[in-house]
Amino acid sequence: MAQPIFAFRDVSVRFGATPILDKVGFDVAPEEFLCLVGPSGCGKTTLLRVAAGLIRPQEGRAEFEGRAVAEPTPELAIVFQDYSRALLPWRTVAGNVELALEARGAPRAGRAAEVKRLLGIIGLADHAQKFPLQLSGGMQQRVQIARALAQRPRILLMDEPFGSLDAMTRQALQDEIARLCKAERQTVVFVTHDLEEAIYLGDRVVALEANPGRVVEIVEIALPRPRDQLTTREHPRFLEYRHRLFGHLAKKEAE
Protein backbone atom coordinates (compact mmCIF):
# COMPACT_ATOMS: atom_id res chain seq x y z
CA MET A 1 0.00 0.00 0.00
CA ALA A 2 1.14 3.53 -0.79
CA GLN A 3 2.20 5.87 1.98
CA PRO A 4 -1.04 6.53 3.92
CA ILE A 5 -2.46 10.06 3.78
CA PHE A 6 -4.51 9.44 6.89
CA ALA A 7 -4.49 6.97 9.75
CA PHE A 8 -6.29 6.05 12.94
CA ARG A 9 -3.80 4.91 15.57
CA ASP A 10 -5.37 2.87 18.37
CA VAL A 11 -8.23 5.34 18.82
CA SER A 12 -10.26 4.77 22.00
CA VAL A 13 -13.22 6.94 22.96
CA ARG A 14 -15.37 6.71 26.05
CA PHE A 15 -18.49 8.71 26.89
CA GLY A 16 -18.36 8.68 30.67
CA ALA A 17 -17.73 5.07 31.62
CA THR A 18 -19.17 3.68 28.37
CA PRO A 19 -16.52 2.60 25.86
CA ILE A 20 -17.53 3.68 22.34
CA LEU A 21 -14.41 2.88 20.37
CA ASP A 22 -11.71 0.42 21.45
CA LYS A 23 -8.25 0.74 19.88
CA VAL A 24 -9.44 1.34 16.34
CA GLY A 25 -6.56 1.51 13.91
CA PHE A 26 -6.24 1.48 10.11
CA ASP A 27 -4.74 3.54 7.29
CA VAL A 28 -6.29 5.44 4.40
CA ALA A 29 -4.35 5.54 1.13
CA PRO A 30 -4.27 8.63 -1.12
CA GLU A 31 -7.13 8.72 -3.65
CA GLU A 32 -8.79 5.82 -1.90
CA PHE A 33 -12.55 5.59 -1.45
CA LEU A 34 -12.76 3.92 1.95
CA CYS A 35 -16.11 2.86 3.38
CA LEU A 36 -16.71 2.32 7.04
CA VAL A 37 -19.64 0.04 7.78
CA GLY A 38 -21.07 -1.28 10.99
CA PRO A 39 -24.25 -1.80 12.99
CA SER A 40 -25.77 1.09 14.89
CA GLY A 41 -23.85 1.80 18.07
CA CYS A 42 -20.49 0.73 16.65
CA GLY A 43 -19.15 4.27 16.93
CA LYS A 44 -18.64 4.88 13.21
CA THR A 45 -19.99 8.43 13.46
CA THR A 46 -17.82 9.05 16.51
CA LEU A 47 -14.80 7.80 14.58
CA LEU A 48 -15.54 10.22 11.74
CA ARG A 49 -15.85 13.09 14.23
CA VAL A 50 -12.44 12.13 15.60
CA ALA A 51 -11.11 12.24 12.02
CA ALA A 52 -12.60 15.73 11.52
CA GLY A 53 -11.02 16.98 14.73
CA LEU A 54 -14.42 17.67 16.31
CA ILE A 55 -13.73 15.39 19.29
CA ARG A 56 -10.52 14.17 20.83
CA PRO A 57 -10.10 10.51 21.68
CA GLN A 58 -9.08 9.58 25.22
CA GLU A 59 -6.36 7.38 23.76
CA GLY A 60 -4.67 7.15 20.40
CA ARG A 61 -5.02 9.70 17.64
CA ALA A 62 -6.10 10.46 14.11
CA GLU A 63 -3.19 11.39 11.86
CA PHE A 64 -3.29 13.41 8.69
CA GLU A 65 -0.02 13.13 6.76
CA GLY A 66 1.68 11.94 9.92
CA ARG A 67 0.50 14.87 12.10
CA ALA A 68 -2.13 14.45 14.80
CA VAL A 69 -5.52 16.01 14.03
CA ALA A 70 -6.23 18.08 17.15
CA GLU A 71 -8.87 20.41 15.75
CA PRO A 72 -10.81 20.99 12.52
CA THR A 73 -8.72 21.95 9.50
CA PRO A 74 -9.85 22.97 6.01
CA GLU A 75 -7.94 20.00 4.62
CA LEU A 76 -10.58 17.69 6.10
CA ALA A 77 -14.16 18.44 5.05
CA ILE A 78 -17.12 16.73 6.68
CA VAL A 79 -20.58 16.12 5.19
CA PHE A 80 -23.22 15.44 7.84
CA GLN A 81 -26.22 13.18 7.44
CA ASP A 82 -28.76 15.77 8.63
CA TYR A 83 -28.40 18.17 5.70
CA SER A 84 -31.40 20.27 6.73
CA ARG A 85 -29.68 21.22 9.98
CA ALA A 86 -26.21 21.52 8.55
CA LEU A 87 -27.13 24.22 6.02
CA LEU A 88 -27.58 27.86 6.99
CA PRO A 89 -31.26 28.52 6.22
CA TRP A 90 -30.70 32.28 5.90
CA ARG A 91 -28.11 31.88 3.16
CA THR A 92 -28.96 30.98 -0.39
CA VAL A 93 -27.53 27.85 -1.98
CA ALA A 94 -24.70 29.96 -3.41
CA GLY A 95 -24.22 31.67 -0.05
CA ASN A 96 -23.88 28.33 1.73
CA VAL A 97 -21.20 27.18 -0.67
CA GLU A 98 -19.42 30.52 -0.44
CA LEU A 99 -19.26 30.07 3.34
CA ALA A 100 -16.47 27.53 2.88
CA LEU A 101 -14.60 29.89 0.56
CA GLU A 102 -14.84 32.67 3.13
CA ALA A 103 -13.62 30.29 5.81
CA ARG A 104 -10.47 29.42 3.93
CA GLY A 105 -9.93 33.08 2.99
CA ALA A 106 -10.33 32.68 -0.77
CA PRO A 107 -9.94 36.02 -2.57
CA ARG A 108 -13.28 37.76 -2.88
CA ALA A 109 -12.91 38.33 -6.62
CA GLY A 110 -12.81 34.68 -7.57
CA ARG A 111 -15.52 33.42 -5.24
CA ALA A 112 -18.57 33.84 -7.46
CA ALA A 113 -16.93 31.95 -10.31
CA GLU A 114 -15.80 29.17 -7.98
CA VAL A 115 -19.29 28.83 -6.48
CA LYS A 116 -20.74 28.67 -9.99
CA ARG A 117 -18.25 25.98 -11.00
CA LEU A 118 -19.04 23.85 -7.92
CA LEU A 119 -22.80 24.20 -8.32
CA GLY A 120 -22.40 23.16 -11.95
CA ILE A 121 -20.43 20.05 -10.97
CA ILE A 122 -23.03 18.99 -8.43
CA GLY A 123 -26.07 19.76 -10.61
CA LEU A 124 -27.39 22.82 -8.81
CA ALA A 125 -26.63 25.50 -11.39
CA ASP A 126 -30.30 26.50 -11.64
CA HIS A 127 -30.85 26.73 -7.89
CA ALA A 128 -28.09 29.11 -6.82
CA GLN A 129 -30.41 31.82 -5.52
CA LYS A 130 -32.88 29.56 -3.69
CA PHE A 131 -32.90 29.07 0.04
CA PRO A 132 -32.05 25.53 1.26
CA LEU A 133 -35.48 24.92 2.77
CA GLN A 134 -37.04 25.47 -0.64
CA LEU A 135 -35.17 22.44 -1.99
CA SER A 136 -35.77 18.69 -1.77
CA GLY A 137 -33.67 16.56 0.59
CA GLY A 138 -31.46 15.28 -2.21
CA MET A 139 -30.83 18.83 -3.44
CA GLN A 140 -30.00 20.02 0.07
CA GLN A 141 -27.47 17.23 0.43
CA ARG A 142 -25.92 18.28 -2.88
CA VAL A 143 -25.51 21.78 -1.44
CA GLN A 144 -23.69 20.36 1.55
CA ILE A 145 -21.41 18.30 -0.70
CA ALA A 146 -20.67 21.37 -2.83
CA ARG A 147 -19.80 23.29 0.32
CA ALA A 148 -17.45 20.51 1.45
CA LEU A 149 -15.77 20.47 -1.96
CA ALA A 150 -15.39 24.27 -1.78
CA GLN A 151 -13.00 23.69 1.10
CA ARG A 152 -10.73 21.93 -1.44
CA PRO A 153 -10.26 19.19 1.13
CA ARG A 154 -7.50 16.62 0.89
CA ILE A 155 -9.93 14.17 2.46
CA LEU A 156 -13.70 14.18 2.20
CA LEU A 157 -15.38 12.72 5.29
CA MET A 158 -18.99 11.68 4.78
CA ASP A 159 -21.26 10.58 7.61
CA GLU A 160 -24.13 8.48 6.21
CA PRO A 161 -24.73 11.27 3.69
CA PHE A 162 -27.46 9.41 1.79
CA GLY A 163 -29.02 7.69 4.80
CA SER A 164 -32.20 9.75 4.91
CA LEU A 165 -32.83 10.01 1.16
CA ASP A 166 -35.26 7.94 -0.86
CA ALA A 167 -33.87 4.97 -2.82
CA MET A 168 -33.83 6.59 -6.28
CA THR A 169 -32.16 9.78 -5.09
CA ARG A 170 -29.68 7.75 -3.09
CA GLN A 171 -28.61 5.70 -6.12
CA ALA A 172 -28.26 8.80 -8.29
CA LEU A 173 -26.08 10.49 -5.68
CA GLN A 174 -24.01 7.35 -5.13
CA ASP A 175 -23.12 7.27 -8.82
CA GLU A 176 -22.40 10.97 -8.97
CA ILE A 177 -20.18 11.01 -5.89
CA ALA A 178 -18.30 7.92 -7.09
CA ARG A 179 -17.71 9.42 -10.54
CA LEU A 180 -16.78 12.84 -9.14
CA CYS A 181 -14.35 11.56 -6.52
CA LYS A 182 -12.57 9.28 -8.95
CA ALA A 183 -12.37 12.06 -11.58
CA GLU A 184 -10.98 14.53 -9.04
CA ARG A 185 -8.81 11.85 -7.39
CA GLN A 186 -10.45 12.74 -4.11
CA THR A 187 -9.66 10.69 -1.00
CA VAL A 188 -12.90 9.76 0.78
CA VAL A 189 -13.85 8.20 4.10
CA PHE A 190 -17.48 7.27 3.80
CA VAL A 191 -19.53 6.05 6.79
CA THR A 192 -22.67 4.02 6.22
CA HIS A 193 -24.78 1.35 7.90
CA ASP A 194 -25.77 0.04 4.48
CA LEU A 195 -23.43 -2.82 3.57
CA GLU A 196 -24.35 -2.85 -0.13
CA GLU A 197 -23.70 0.88 -0.38
CA ALA A 198 -20.29 0.35 1.21
CA ILE A 199 -19.33 -2.41 -1.24
CA TYR A 200 -20.78 -0.51 -4.22
CA LEU A 201 -18.79 2.64 -3.50
CA GLY A 202 -15.65 1.47 -1.77
CA ASP A 203 -12.14 0.55 -2.83
CA ARG A 204 -11.96 -1.01 0.61
CA VAL A 205 -14.55 -1.65 3.26
CA VAL A 206 -13.71 -1.51 6.95
CA ALA A 207 -16.25 -3.43 9.03
CA LEU A 208 -16.73 -2.44 12.65
CA GLU A 209 -18.49 -4.37 15.37
CA ALA A 210 -20.37 -2.70 18.20
CA ASN A 211 -20.14 -2.39 21.99
CA PRO A 212 -17.43 -1.29 21.93
CA GLY A 213 -16.54 -0.36 18.34
CA ARG A 214 -13.68 -2.47 17.00
CA VAL A 215 -12.38 -3.25 13.52
CA VAL A 216 -13.37 -6.83 12.65
CA GLU A 217 -12.38 -7.03 9.03
CA ILE A 218 -10.96 -4.97 6.19
CA VAL A 219 -11.90 -6.10 2.69
CA GLU A 220 -10.39 -4.98 -0.63
CA ILE A 221 -13.18 -4.50 -3.14
CA ALA A 222 -11.91 -5.68 -6.52
CA LEU A 223 -14.90 -4.63 -8.60
CA PRO A 224 -14.36 -2.83 -11.89
CA ARG A 225 -15.06 0.89 -12.22
CA PRO A 226 -17.11 2.70 -13.33
CA ARG A 227 -19.61 0.76 -11.32
CA ASP A 228 -23.18 0.25 -12.36
CA GLN A 229 -26.26 -0.01 -10.21
CA LEU A 230 -27.38 -3.20 -12.01
CA THR A 231 -24.33 -5.06 -13.21
CA THR A 232 -22.06 -4.28 -10.27
CA ARG A 233 -24.67 -5.34 -7.77
CA GLU A 234 -25.17 -8.61 -9.72
CA HIS A 235 -21.43 -9.27 -10.02
CA PRO A 236 -20.44 -12.60 -8.37
CA ARG A 237 -17.74 -10.89 -6.32
CA PHE A 238 -20.24 -8.28 -5.07
CA LEU A 239 -22.34 -11.13 -3.68
CA GLU A 240 -19.26 -12.79 -2.29
CA TYR A 241 -18.25 -9.64 -0.39
CA ARG A 242 -21.79 -9.22 0.82
CA HIS A 243 -21.86 -12.76 2.20
CA ARG A 244 -18.51 -12.35 3.79
CA LEU A 245 -19.30 -9.05 5.53
CA PHE A 246 -22.95 -9.68 6.28
CA GLY A 247 -22.12 -12.00 9.16
CA HIS A 248 -20.33 -9.24 11.07
CA LEU A 249 -23.35 -6.95 10.91
CA ALA A 250 -26.05 -9.57 11.43
CA LYS A 251 -24.23 -11.22 14.32
CA LYS A 252 -24.14 -8.04 16.33
CA GLU A 253 -27.64 -6.88 15.44
CA ALA A 254 -29.07 -10.22 16.59
CA GLU A 255 -27.62 -10.03 20.07
Binding site: L54, P72, D82, R85, L88, L99, A100, R104
Partner: peptide, 24 residues
Protein backbone atom coordinates in the same frame (compact mmCIF):
# COMPACT_ATOMS: atom_id res chain seq x y z
CA UNK B 1 -25.30 21.19 14.32
CA UNK B 2 -25.07 24.71 12.86
CA UNK B 3 -22.43 25.75 15.37
CA UNK B 4 -20.61 22.49 14.73
CA UNK B 5 -20.60 23.21 10.99
CA UNK B 6 -18.96 26.52 11.90
CA UNK B 7 -16.26 24.68 13.84
CA UNK B 8 -15.77 22.10 11.09
CA UNK B 9 -15.31 24.89 8.52
CA UNK B 10 -12.62 26.36 10.75
CA UNK B 11 -14.39 29.50 12.01
CA UNK B 12 -13.16 30.86 15.35
CA UNK B 13 -15.43 31.52 18.33
CA UNK B 14 -16.20 35.16 17.49
CA UNK B 15 -16.74 34.43 13.80
CA UNK B 16 -19.12 31.62 14.78
CA UNK B 17 -21.20 34.08 16.80
CA UNK B 18 -21.30 36.57 13.94
CA UNK B 19 -21.87 34.14 11.06
CA UNK B 20 -23.90 31.43 12.79
CA UNK B 21 -25.38 32.25 16.21
CA UNK B 22 -26.58 35.79 15.49
CA UNK B 23 -28.35 35.11 12.18
CA UNK B 24 -29.87 31.90 13.54
Amino acid sequence: RLLEVGRALGYGALARIWHFALPA
